[in-house]
């Protein structure tokens, strides 16, 4: 069995920014489910039983493996600490950039650290919930959802900028709407796009303020409501005029503006939401059992002490500061208010 994995690892390697490589390594290391020892026995037995098979026929081996893998949850000693991150921009080449963060954490913590890329907020939360990752760089809303699903999990650090995060409403120039301090009521009746459905800055907070000022749900207020999927695409769609108004993360806008990717004659910021707390590092509560009682503290320190600009640029944040669960109460309340989360006793 181990031989097999090593072989396939060698082929796939961790080059794959997808999960092929990294996945296999996670499976190797899972050992956290109650029944694991029993499965371990069954598993070993089955492996021996099919060993002869392996020698003679690779088809037999594949089939044997297949059946085995279907019935036997993987279970070996968990020594690898795995994390993931929700990037709000520049999603390409993630593996390369976050592998460097993994190397840093490995040095600081003295355990094997791996990064696995995810594609969406929901996937990140699910991976965290299922203990496929123990640490995640979540958005405000995804963090709240994750901590709600995993009892004992803690927000331990946020980006310096995340204390006072905000969203911009942006509009195509043909709308003739100008920037104002007051909420621009004239966006009612226009076509509008959010970012991803699960985004704090691209959906949750903008929707909250739209409801607050225009007193109705977005699909009642606007002629059309789309979900572009992410901030960069919201920008492209409003800049092209496909949607007249949109909501983006202020950091994504500022970065794109600095990079010269925005044509100010076509699209501009018309309103900025009040500040709210956003991205944060959240860790599972059960890491203490696996990595030692002081692990969470050491992890927090390692994050707070991260000072290499190259590492911080992956997020992109100036630095990380302390955070806790209570800080995100407003996000939870907002999500309940607009019906994204059911209030639960």
């Amino acid at each position: 069995m181990p031989l097999k994995f090593n072989r396939s690892r060698a082929i796939v390697n961790s080059e794959a920014p997808g999960l092929a490589g990294s996945n296999k390594d996670i499976y190797k290391d899972s050992h956290n489910h109650g029944d694991s020892s029993r499965y371990n026995k069954v598993f070993t037995k089955l492996t021996y039983l099919t060993a002869g098979f392996h020698m003679n026929s690779s088809l037999g081996r594949s089939l044997g493996l297949f059946i085995l893998l279907l019935i036997a949850p993987m279970s070996q000693a968990q020594t690898t600490f795995t994390f993931t991150a929700i990037p709000d921009q520049n999603e390409a080449h993630l593996q390369e950039r976050f592998d460097k963060v993994a190397v840093y954490l490995q040095q600081e913590l003295g355990v094997d650290v791996r990064y696995i890329p995810v594609k969406s907020y929901a996937a990140a939360v699910t991976a965290f919930r299922n203990d496929q990752v123990q640490l995640a760089w979540f958005g405000g809303l995804s963090g709240v959802q994750a901590r709600r699903l995993v009892t004992g999990s803690q927000a331990i650090a946020q980006g310096y900028e995340d204390q006072l995060f905000s969203s911009y409403l942006i509009a195509h120039s043909s709308t003739g709407i100008n920037k104002s301090e007051e909420f621009p009521g004239e966006i009612a009746g226009k076509t509008f796009t959010f970012g991803s459905k699960g985004s704090t800055s691209g959906r949750l907070m903008p929707e909250y303020y739209i409801r607050q000022h225009l007193l109705a749900a977005p699909n009642k207020v606007f002629a059309k409501v789309g979900f572009s999927g992410d901030h960069s695409r919201t920008l492209a769609l409003v800049q092209s005029g496909a949607y007249q108004v949109g909501a983006v993360n202020f950091k994504v806008w500022d970065t794109a503006l600095a990079a010269g990717k925005i044509d100010s004659s076509k699209v501009k910021v018309i309103w900025q939401t009040p500040r709210y707390p956003d991205y944060q590092w959240t860790v599972r509560g059960d890491v203490a059992n696996r990595f030692g009682a002081d692990f969470q503290q050491r992890l927090t320190d390692a994050l707070l002490n991260m000072s290499d600009p190259e590492l911080l640029a992956s997020f992109p944040r100036r630095s990380f500061i302390k955070a806790d669960n209570a800080l995100y109460k407003p996000i939870f309340d907002t999500a309940v208010a607009i019906g994204l989360i059911d209030a639960r006793p």
Partner: peptide, 22 residues
Amino acid sequence: LPLYLIGAFYYLPPQAQTSWQL
């Protein structure tokens, strides 16, 4: 085809980290 199939299972064996609790 059989060769490709064996290759595919060898290269990417179907596996998952799961448990009955999940």
